[in-house]
Simulated assay, not measured.
Amino acid sequence: MNRRTKTIAVAAAVLLTLGAGGVAVASGNDAPVPAAATVREAAALTGTAKLYRPAGDDITFSFDAHLAAKDNKDPEAATGTFRFSHYKGGKGGYAVAKVDCLTTGGKVAVVTGKVIETDVDAFRNKRVGVSVHDDGKHDRLGYSWVGRDTNLEVPPCLSAAPFEQVQKGTGDFKVLPWQIDYPTE
């Protein structure tokens, strides 16, 4: 088979594949029906990473936070959970928070949530905030319990800037940027 014939055959196969993906066969009457359009969620933060600590601390953050398309103008309607833990020398603890707000912009996300499960009394039933910068190679993270007053109740959608380095090879954060629909008039 010559090169031109191969090129035409490959192009035809690609077109057939793409065409088949765009329609679905209705049950019962073989009439093609357009495939349902996929609705993009308004914002999301997912992934897991360990923080860099030269002293050997095991600090891990995991996120599964989402803002549905229907809630695009209400970041406090976000859902999901996030988890963090800090262990060293057999001591430490963990917490799981239920998401109550998510905002994203470009590759940065801020998520807050009320702690619903923990073995650390200082976090029990507190709202905490975490920020993430997802730059693909050198992800960063920040959290609200830094500073003198770590008992401060954090308002929804607020946290510290992403000041911590993620341990090399562990950051797989994915930030889906929020796309706000602005009025045109």
Rank of each mutant, 00 (worst) to 15 (best):
Asn2Asp: 11
Lys6Glu: 11
Lys6Thr: 12
Thr7Lys: 06
Val10Leu: 14
Gly19Ser: 11
Ser27Phe: 06
Gly28Pro: 13
Asn29Met: 04
Asp30Gln: 13
Val33Met: 12
Pro34Ala: 09
Pro34Lys: 10
Ala36Thr: 13
Ala36Ile: 05
Ala36Gln: 10
Thr38Ser: 14
Ala42His: 02
Ala43Phe: 02
Ala43Arg: 00
Ala44Trp: 00
Leu45Tyr: 01
Leu45Lys: 03
Thr46Tyr: 03
Thr46Arg: 08
Gly47Val: 02
Thr48Asp: 06
Tyr52Thr: 11
Gly56Asn: 10
Asp57Met: 08
Ile59Ala: 11
Ile59Met: 14
Thr60Lys: 09
Ala65Thr: 02
Ala65His: 01
Glu76Trp: 02
Glu76Arg: 05
Ala77Asn: 10
Thr79Val: 08
Arg83Val: 13
Phe84Leu: 08
Phe84Tyr: 13
Gly89Arg: 13
Gly90Leu: 01
Lys91Asp: 15
Asp100Val: 04
Asp100Trp: 01
Cys101Val: 06
Cys101Trp: 05
Leu102Tyr: 03
Leu102Lys: 00
Lys107Ser: 15
Val108Tyr: 14
Ala109Ile: 08
Val110Leu: 07
Val110Arg: 03
Gly113Asp: 00
Val120His: 02
Asp121His: 01
Phe123Asn: 10
Phe123Lys: 14
Arg124Asp: 06
Arg124Trp: 06
Asn125Val: 05
Arg127Asp: 04
Arg127Gly: 02
Gly129Glu: 07
His133Pro: 03
Lys137Met: 08
Asp139Gln: 05
Asp139Thr: 04
Arg140Lys: 12
Gly142Thr: 05
Tyr143Gly: 11
Trp145Arg: 15
Trp145His: 14
Val146Thr: 15
Arg148Gln: 14
Thr150Asn: 13
Asn151His: 13
Cys157Leu: 07
Cys157Tyr: 00
Leu158Arg: 15
Leu158Lys: 15
Ser159Arg: 07
Ala160Lys: 14
Pro162Phe: 04
Gln167Asp: 10
Gly169Met: 05
Thr170Ile: 10
Gly171Trp: 02
Gly171Phe: 00
Phe173Val: 06
Phe173Met: 06
Val175Leu: 03
Trp178Leu: 14
Ile180Lys: 12
Glu185Pro: 11
Glu185Cys: 10
